[in-house]
């Protein structure tokens, strides 16, 4: 990181952070999960459908 300063980058680079992508991979995993649900068209409505059927059964 010190190379930025030696190489004459703007002074703001005194605190430029290097962030390893490990955290990003976790975040991508989450995104993938969401994509999976979206691609299978599972919405909050049909996700809870079985539960509402049970309720229906009980009320009947």
């Amino acid at each position: 990181m010190n190379n930025f300063i030696e190489e004459g980058f703007p002074l703001e680079f005194q605190q430029v952070q290097k962030v390893e992508k490990e955290q990003t991979i976790l975040r991508n995993k989450k995104v993938m999960d969401i994509d999976f649900y979206q691609s299978n068209q599972i919405t909050p409505q049909n996700f809870f459908k079985p539960i509402s059927k049970i309720f229906k059964f009980e009320f009947d």
Partner: peptide, 13 residues
């Protein structure tokens, strides 16, 4: 590929 660099906004010199 494996990392990214980001600034810290306003910093003390």
């Amino acid at each position: 590929k494996d990392c990214y660099y980001k600034g810290n906004g306003t910093i003390v010199v």
